[in-house]
């Protein structure tokens, strides 16, 4: 099964999750996702997701001037974003548990 298809549904949650403890700029967020194991996440998908979450009022942004290079736009979770992360996290966990049980029942190896 193609991971990119799965990613579409959960990229919002993944981006919210990697911003939970630390603010980050675009490339930084992409790196965190890849380091977490989502190697197939596309560059454009991350920026598109950031824009959509921002438009939905879940993120706030601020610009940090950089001495060695371009200024960077940092994203940070606001209260609505944290709320959304909690709810989406729960939904995912319940969904994943259901899927695990479904596969377990039929003797599929992890």
């Amino acid at each position: 099964m193609d991971t990119t298809q799965l990613l579409k549904g959960v990229l919002d949650l993944a981006v919210l999750a990697v911003l939970k403890d630390e603010d980050g700029y675009g490339y930084d967020i992409l790196r965190r996702l890849r380091e977490a194991g989502l190697a197939e996440v596309g560059d454009a998908s991350v920026y598109g997701t950031l824009r959509r979450l921002f438009a939905a009022g879940l993120l706030t942004t601020y610009v940090v001037p950089s001495e060695s290079g371009p200024h960077r736009k940092y994203y940070s979770l606001n209260a609505a974003g944290r709320d959304q992360l909690t709810r989406s996290g729960k939904t995912w966990r319940s969904f994943a548990t259901t899927m695990d049980a479904l596969l377990d029942d039929r003797g599929m190896a992890a």
């Binding site: 579409k8 990229l11 490339y27 596309g42 560059d43 454009a44 998908s45 920026y47 598109g48 997701t49 824009r51 959509r52 438009a55 290079g69 371009p70």
Partner: peptide
């Protein structure tokens, strides 16, 4: 610039055609 600084190869090799990049950006951002 960050992508360029990190590895070898052209941008198109690593990110795909600009048009494909744009299509993905547009689709995901809605």
């Amino acid at each position: 610039a960050e992508v360029a600084a990190e590895g070898e190869g052209t941008l198109v090799d690593r990110l795909g055609a600009p048009e494909a990049y744009a299509a993905e950006l547009r689709a995901v951002a809605g």
